[in-house]
Amino acid sequence: MNNRQTQTRLGLGAVIFSLLLAGLAIPRWVSSPSNVPNIVLSPLFWPYVLAGLTGLTGLGLLASRAFQDDDPTPINPPIDDPRRGALRLAGMALLMVVAMGLMSWLGMVWTCMGLLLATALLVRTRHPRAAMICAVAAPLLLYAFFAHVAGVAIPQGQLVRLP
């Protein structure tokens, strides 16, 4: 994707987003009392102003394409295998979702141990042993600090409870 294509997509995205905000999101998810004396005091006023400005920015982005050359150079450096890259990203998203789900059941420390190790493997670390040591030590050290020094109630989970 070159610079001009990016600008076009951003512009279109901003315009569509502002229309969605003004037509759907603000009426549905921003509530306002019926007795507001003046429109500028309404909780709806600011979101509508911002939706309008977002739309204008989007139009500005679309209009500014005219001043840009159609240089085909991609704005981001290419990677060897984009499909694998996308799969790794999907894997990371899945890891995040699983970590969020597991945190209350397994506890933050054990979840973070798994997440750290899985992330290190996902980025193909050249130091798997060091990654394993970090995966055990880092969450435990952070737990010791936050739970015992800072007094933060780190989620313990249902299976193994730490002192």
């Binding site: 973070c112 997440l115 992330t119 670390t125 130091h127 780190i154």
Partner: peptide, 18 residues
């Protein structure tokens, strides 16, 4: 090594934000 540091940073962020 960055591929070791980045996963540790992720965990640090989780604890810090929590």
């Amino acid at each position: 090594p960055r591929r070791l540091l980045v996963p540790v940073v992720l965990i640090l962020c989780i604890y810090g934000v929590y």
